[in-house]
Design a protein around this nucleic acid. Structure first.
Length: 272
DNA sequence: ATGGTCGCGCAGCGA
């Protein structure tokens, strides 16, 4: 079994690339973030035609999360939007969806962007992460393998950004954000891709601006955090940096995790 | 190539 997470930055503008990527990557479950689509705008048919079941949670043209699965898609749950304490400071946003796929509990998560240190959105981000952590403990309690997949908008280690000097007084690396992320690790969740994709320089996101990708100015902010029951089954992982290349790429690369002997290796890609 | 972002939706904001 092979799972993956990918912030696609609009499913409508990325559907051809996602479809082609699924074709060559042999992924059983894909957690998608930033679909930027309402329910009526999501291209369900394109993925059902490929043999995937689809669960999508989208409220507007921002954010939005989905899970594609060809190994079953059950017990779909929407996270947070309507819960006390989770009101976005500006507007309700679709940031989490969960489902059980092939016996693994998958969550697709789009952690709020704090925008700036001291901004109310940063308080919201930290509160959101803490609430997620509390729930994740509940979800993992029965021993079902749990994968928290998504764009965490946190670079937990110095090597996860291209320059710590650049990130002085910026978001994603601040102590409170790192503490919020590390609290998951303290609870026993494991960043399962990292041992197979050691840094430095193994990023998952590169800004569209300033030629960040060719200059290798990236960040590692997309993670699969596994419960103990998932982590013991992980047998490989990869970041498909090739997918960031070329016209029409998302600003994020997919992160692939293989289970039960699958090496998770990104598919060979014919480049031109 | 002596510059240099996308995507939303159609102005300007968010990432």
């Amino acid at each position: 079994m092979r799972i993956a997470t990918w912030n696609v930055n609009s499913i409508r503008s990325r559907v051809d690339r996602v479809e082609a990527w699924l074709h060559r990557s042999d992924v059983d479950v894909l957690a998608i973030q930033e679909t930027k689509a309402r329910e009526d705008q999501f291209p369900y048919q394109r993925f059902t035609d490929l043999g995937y079941e689809v669960a999508h949670h989208g409220l507007n043209q921002w954010n939005g999360v989905a899970i594609l699965s060809r190994v079953g898609l059950d017990d779909i749950a929407i996270g947070f939007d309507g819960d006390p304490g989770f009101g976005d400071p500006v507007a309700p946003e679709a940031r989490s969806i969960g489902a059980t796929c092939g016996g693994v509990r998958i969550w697709s998560l789009y952690v709020p962007n704090g925008r700036a240190l001291g901004d109310p959105h940063m308080d919201y981000k930290l509160a959101w992460l803490e609430q997620l952590r509390q729930r994740a403990g509940d979800w993992a309690a029965d021993g079902t393998p749990l994968a928290l997949c998504g764009d965490w908008n946190v670079a937990p280690q110095d090597e996860d950004v291209w320059s710590m000097e650049y990130f002085v007084d910026k978001t994603h690396v601040s102590p409170p954000e790192r503490a919020a992320f590390n609290a998951f690790l303290d609870d026993g969740f494991v960043d399962v891709a990292r041992p197979y994709t050691p840094g430095p320089g193994t990023y998952t996101y590169w800004d569209y601006q300033q030629l960040a990708f060719p200059k290798r100015r990236g960040m590692r902010i997309d993670f699969v955090l596994g419960s103990a029951g998932l982590t013991e089954r992980v047998s490989g992982a990869a970041i498909d940096r090739e997918e960031r290349k070329g016209k029409g790429a998302s600003d994020h690369a997919p992160v692939i995790v293989g289970l039960d002997g699958d090496d998770g290796a990104a598919a060979e890609r014919v480049t031109t």
